[in-house]
Design a protein around this nucleic acid. Structure first.
Lengths: 196, 196
DNA sequence: GGGGTAATGTACCGATAGGTAAAAAATTTC
DNA sequence: GAAATTTTTTACCTATCGGTACATTACCCC
């Protein structure tokens, strides 16, 4: 029934190219020409396949969270809350200082796309961040290995504050090894230095 | 000798208006029309007084660091390293969640202006951040009240990671009171809960 | 091998970006 | 008051922004 000319590109591969550009240059710093060039398609193809720039960014953010950023959701399944926090913090270092990916975190960058035209994109990013933090809070509420009297909500807030800070530091040029030392110190301070 | 028509606006007041706009919308998200409207001057006056957008931003960043951001340099003069860290972290909360100023930190936002045209501005911001962190590291190296075996460089990196994270959280909408609780928890973890 | 259909390539749209030329206006010095 | 000087005003520049109209091409079905 459908017929029609088949598309000449792989949509997922094109999304990956778009992800690379948005991750490196941010939403506001990326033009449609940057995108079409990187994706290897022309403008009408982009619009037909992905909607406009804003919708494309939403698709890209999905892909980011399901791909490079998936460690954050996965970490919540660790058996102990200690391990959850460790995986989040150390994972943030690896994510934001990759050799083959841009420095920093796409989600953190998106929060800082604060021009008038970027409001929907920023709101979207903020919403997803809040959902992620709520999930961490619920995970910590369920934990039995927290220090007595610890507030899971505040604890979740601090963990996300630290991972956000790691992203900023990476975007600001701090290298992976240095950032690992910082992360280790943060974990020792947060969780104590004992083995379990 | 000089003569000439006197300028009809106060340059410092105009810089403050420009600061407000850049702080709220970021470098990339702010247009010259946004600036001239907020500053109450027209375009050629802006260029004559401040150079181009990039130079204006440099002047604004100076003013930010000497004004709202001055607490960070001042904190280094506290008598104990414990107090230095406290003033940095708590000061970051106040700075980024002010009722009459935009949410977040202009310096952290500038690191995330990562489009091709923003490279000089980003580099400038990164340079100033590194200088600030080097100053903190030197202050901690000189301290006598650090735990034995603590690495001042890594410690300085962690403190800046936390203040950066606070800025991201504020930009992402977390309120002042919540962020104070997060900061308090961070300080207890970093410095212990004892009184001195 | 023709229809129907959907993607492609080209060429364009109005709006806005950052930046400036040139004349008019306001001041000082003489 | 006239010359010199500096700012303001108005009008404009080119380049690029995000987005689209339209004709062409390549496929499926019959």
């Amino acid at each position: 029934m459908p017929g029609g000319r088949p598309r000449s590109f792989d949509a997922d591969a094109a999304l990956d190219r778009a992800l690379e550009v948005f991750w490196r240059q941010g939403y506001e710093g990326t033009s449609l020409s940057d995108l079409t060039e990187a994706m290897g398609i022309n403008r009408p193809s982009l619009y037909a396949a992905f909607g406009n720039k804003e919708e494309l960014f939403g698709r890209v953010l999905d892909r980011y969270l399901e791909g490079p950023g998936a460690f954050a959701a996965d970490a919540l399944e660790a058996p102990t809350s200690r391990e959850v926090v460790e995986r989040l913090v150390l994972g943030a270092v690896e994510l934001t200082t990759g050799d083959h990916t841009p420095r920093g975190c796409l989600s953190v960058k998106s929060v800082h796309a604060c021009g008038p035209d970027s409001a929907p994109v920023r709101q979207d990013a903020v919403g997803r961040r809040k959902a992620g933090e709520a999930a961490l809070r619920r995970r910590l509420e369920r934990a039995t290995d927290l220090p007595p009297g610890a507030d899971p909500g505040v604890m979740a807030g601090l963990v996300h504050t630290i991972t956000d800070g790691i992203a900023v530091q990476a975007a600001g040029g701090r290298g992976r090894e240095e950032l690992r030392q910082v992360a280790d110190l943060a974990l020792r301070a947060l969780l104590g230095s004992d083995q379990r």
